[in-house]
Computed example of a mutant assay.
Amino acid sequence: MGIQVELRLADERVRALPDPAGGSFDAAGDFDRLLRSGRTGLPLLGGVDPHGELRLGPGDMAQLVDEIDLLLEEATAGPEQRGLMRLRTMAARCAQEVYGQLVFSGD
């Protein structure tokens, strides 16, 4: 299954966000390859545990967007790139929410 990310507002999972590719979505994933162990230059995403959980709040989102932008340069077209664009959309929304959290869950 890999790493999946959800946006939660006041501990409720957001079920529909506007997808950059059209339609809507409720989670982001498919970018596990880019988060390989020992990766430098990614203080937040480098801390994602492929078998655990990581929660990031609104104050982390500017740094997270910067890291996502770096990974987008390496992402392959298709699911990997789409997953990062969804994650970027989630980060932008989380940054606007006082009680927002992005929850990264490994398998």
Rank of each mutant, 00 (worst) to 15 (best):
Q96C: 11
E67D: 11
R88E: 02
S24K: 10
G57N: 05
V98I: 11
D26V: 02
V48P: 00
R86A: 03
G23A: 08
E67I: 07
L72S: 07
A28G: 01
G46W: 03
L35H: 02
I68G: 00
D19A: 09
A77W: 11
A75F: 09
G78N: 09
L64G: 05
D30I: 01
P20L: 04
A95L: 06
M61C: 13
L54Q: 09
T40S: 10
L70A: 12
S37D: 15
G59F: 06
D60E: 15
G59A: 14
R55A: 09
A75G: 09
D66L: 12
C94R: 02
A28E: 00
M85I: 02
A91I: 04
D60V: 14
L34V: 05
T76W: 08
F25T: 05
D32C: 04
R39N: 05
L84V: 00
M85W: 01
L44P: 02
D66I: 06
V65S: 04
D49Y: 10
P79M: 09
V98A: 15
G78Q: 11
A91C: 08
H51R: 15
E73V: 10
R33Y: 15
D30Y: 04
A28S: 03
V65L: 10
Q96K: 13
M61E: 07
T40K: 11
G100N: 07
D49G: 08
M90Y: 03
L35R: 02
T76F: 07
R93V: 09
D69S: 10
V65E: 10
L64R: 05
I68Q: 00
R36P: 03
V48W: 00
L44S: 06
E53T: 13
D19G: 12
Y99D: 09
E67F: 08
D30S: 10
G29E: 01
H51I: 11
G59N: 13
D19F: 04
E67T: 07
R86Q: 07
R39P: 04
P50W: 15
G38W: 06
F31I: 00
G100W: 02
H51P: 01
L42H: 06
L54G: 03
L102F: 09
P58Q: 08
D69H: 13
L64M: 15
A77Q: 12
G52E: 11
E97P: 01
R93Y: 05
L71I: 10
M85A: 08
Q101E: 14
P20T: 03
G100P: 03
M90L: 04
L42R: 05
G57F: 07
E74R: 13
R39I: 07
Q63D: 15
E67V: 08
L102W: 04
A95G: 08
G46Q: 08
G83R: 02
L42Q: 04
A62V: 11
A27W: 00
A92Q: 09
A62G: 04
F31R: 00
A92E: 09
P58M: 05
L56W: 09
G59R: 13
R93N: 03
Y99M: 06
A28P: 00
E97Q: 14
R55E: 10
L34E: 00
R36V: 09
D26H: 08
G59T: 13
A95N: 05
L54I: 05
G57C: 09
M85L: 14
R88V: 03
A92Y: 05
P43I: 04
L72R: 14
A28M: 01
G22W: 12
D60L: 15
E97C: 12
